[in-house]
């Protein structure tokens, strides 16, 4: 499934942040998104994931194909690691969570409550969720925050395995994951449009 973004303009809080953005993401490809703070990387990823509408332009191939991982991991502190993962696996209709536990070295933590995990362990659990979605396109926003070098390696291996199976990934990150990835610096696409002044601009 190829993701095609054409002439995309996106806004946050009624202010356009990026404009004229074109990109394609073919199966097996990884795309690393770079740019200074506040340039609109998160807004771009949320728009592609379908969480907010674009001001103009289009995103094709994103219907029911995207697994999104944002700044928060969506974990329930009173559920165990297994219960958290099993929930997402059944929402996405997949059976086994074992590969996900193995990939992020969570087997020893399986019976622990997510609230008792460290920040890095929580993030590993949040990333393990991607493996139980079975979705071909991963859209990841700063996935390596609070991970140690070993966990970053685990994550890079998981992405590599995902790409090897014909998946693709779009990652906003500033660290080098050692992946064969294209790098897109969104800095040149900074929007020059004025703020949206329509009535509901603040809601867009």
């Amino acid at each position: 499934m190829t993701l095609t973004v054409s002439d995309l303009t996106i806004a946050r809080g009624g202010v356009p942040v990026l404009e004229g953005l074109n990109l394609t993401l073919a199966p097996g490809q990884a795309l690393v998104i770079r740019g200074p703070n506040g340039i609109g990387k998160t807004t771009l990823l949320r728009t592609i994931a379908g969480l907010q509408p674009a001001v103009s332009g289009s995103v094709q191939g994103a219907e029911e194909t995207i697994a999104y991982a944002g700044h928060s991991d969506g974990l329930k502190p009173t559920l165990t690691v297994t219960e958290n993962l099993t929930f997402w696996a059944s929402v996405f209709g997949l059976g086994s969570i074992q590969p996900a536990l193995d990939a992020f070295d969570l087997n020893e933590l399986a019976a622990r409550h997510a609230g008792n995990l460290s920040a890095g362990q929580k993030r590993r659990l949040g990333l393990a969720r991607l493996l139980v979605t079975g979705r071909p396109i991963w859209v990841l926003d700063e996935p390596t925050v609070s991970l140690d070098t070993r966990a970053v390696q685990m994550f890079a291996d998981a992405v590599r395995a995902h790409l090897g199976q014909g998946g693709s990934a779009m990652i906003a990150t500033h660290i080098d994951l050692g992946l064969e990835a294209q790098v897109l610096d969104v800095g040149p696409f900074r929007a020059k449009l004025p703020a949206l002044d329509d009535f509901d601009g603040g809601f867009l």
Binding site: R46, A49, G50, L51, E64, I66, A67, Y68, A69, G70, H71, S72, D73, G74, L75, K76, W88, V91, F92, G93, R129, T133
Partner: peptide
């Protein structure tokens, strides 16, 4: 707060 709604909104 914990981001679950974002993830549910992108779920099937």
């Amino acid at each position: 707060e914990d981001g679950t709604l974002d993830l549910l909104a992108t779920a099937p």
